[in-house]
């Protein structure tokens, strides 16, 4: 066995096999994240010389109402996404209760998740088109006289955008819950049935507690995913009208690549990182399992 140990701890081979991954991760993920904090200390247009201005950008950001407005929208999206998980769980519970055709339903639900956010955004721009879109055509057929201009109305644009986001991810979460529910041993459910438990009791008292760990993982995914959400909003509205649908990532993108304010944009990007990390830690703490459930 000595020779095996010797071969399997060859330092050169270990270096050779891990170096490509390690180099890429360090150069293209770790270093840029650190640089983002550093660039945030600069007054810089991305082309000319950098001017060190200390924490000015970060102080400005903390008083920037546009930034806080976009942060509020991101958190609102996170809240919506987290709450919608309950609906997905309900659908998955129905699907997993020996429904014929469950597999087909689950596939249909998943299709939007496979499409690019750009295609989804363009499709929903058409769905929401005030005069010829699918939604308003249906509403007018139903006798609604003045259906709203969904994406142009600052009061509803944010909620109008939440709908395609939910549309995009519903199938993903239903799929995850369904897989977890299918892992519950049948014997447990049968035993409960023999004891006279109703389907609702079985769902609430047995199934949901048993997949709680998966549910907690999805809460983290939904909240963190929402905080960094970008593509669909950027394409659908560009954060408009007048910032009404701006989120943190789209605000940062606009500062950097439309206004060429790389210093301030970096500061916002770094704050986005810090906020995401803090929220991740908090959500993990809050949902931490005290005891592992065995079955």
């Amino acid at each position: 066995m000595n020779i095996v140990n010797k071969v399997m701890s060859n330092k050169w081979i270990i270096t050779l096999y891990t170096l490509p991954a390690l180099l890429l991760i360090i150069v293209l993920i770790v270093v840029p994240l650190i640089l983002s904090g550093y660039f945030g200390l600069m007054n810089w247009d991305g082309i000319g010389a950098m001017e060190f201005i200390g924490l000015d950008n970060y102080i400005v950001a903390l008083q920037d109402t546009k930034f806080w407005q976009s942060a509020m929208h991101s958190f609102l999206l996170a809240l919506f996404s987290a709450l919608s998980l309950i609906a997905y769980l309900a659908v998955a519970l129905i699907l997993a209760s020996k429904i014929k055709g469950a597999n087909l339903f689950r596939k249909i639900y998943l299709i939007p998740m496979l499409l690019s956010s750009v295609a989804i955004a363009q499709l929903w721009i058409k769905v929401y088109n005030p005069s010829n879109g699918m939604l308003n055509s249906i509403l007018m057929t139903l006798g609604v006289n003045n259906p709203p201009a969904w994406l142009a109305d600052p009061n509803i644009v944010l909620y109008a955008i939440f709908v395609p986001i939910i549309w995009q991810y519903a199938g993903f979460y239903i799929l995850i819950y369904y897989a977890a529910l299918k892992n519950i041993p049948d014997s447990l459910i049968e035993a409960a049935k023999i004891d006279g438990a109703t389907p609702l009791q079985i769902a609430l008292k047995i199934k949901i507690p048993l997949i709680m760990n998966v549910f907690k993982v999805t809460i983290v995914l939904a909240i963190v995913g929402s905080l960094k959400y970008f593509d669909l909003i950027y394409v659908m509205t560009g954060g408009g009208p007048n910032g009404a649908s701006e989120v943190m990532a789209s605000y940062m993108y606009k500062l950097a690549f439309s206004s060429y304010d790389f210093g301030y944009g970096s500061a916002i990007g770094f704050l986005l990182l810090i906020i995401t990390l803090i929220v991740t830690v908090i959500v993990r703490k809050v949902t931490a399992t005290k005891e592992e459930i065995e079955y």
């Binding site: 140990n5 701890s9 983002s36 970096s266 770094f270």
Partner: peptide
């Protein structure tokens, strides 16, 4: 393979799972 820093390297790779790519975008550019 057997080496002491394997856990650390794995941890470093996993950093990429949670971070918002927008935070790295300007430095990458």
């Amino acid at each position: 393979m057997k080496w002491k820093l394997s856990g650390l390297v794995l941890g470093l790779i996993m950093v990429g799972l949670m971070i918002p790519i927008h935070s790295a975008l300007i430095p990458l550019y």
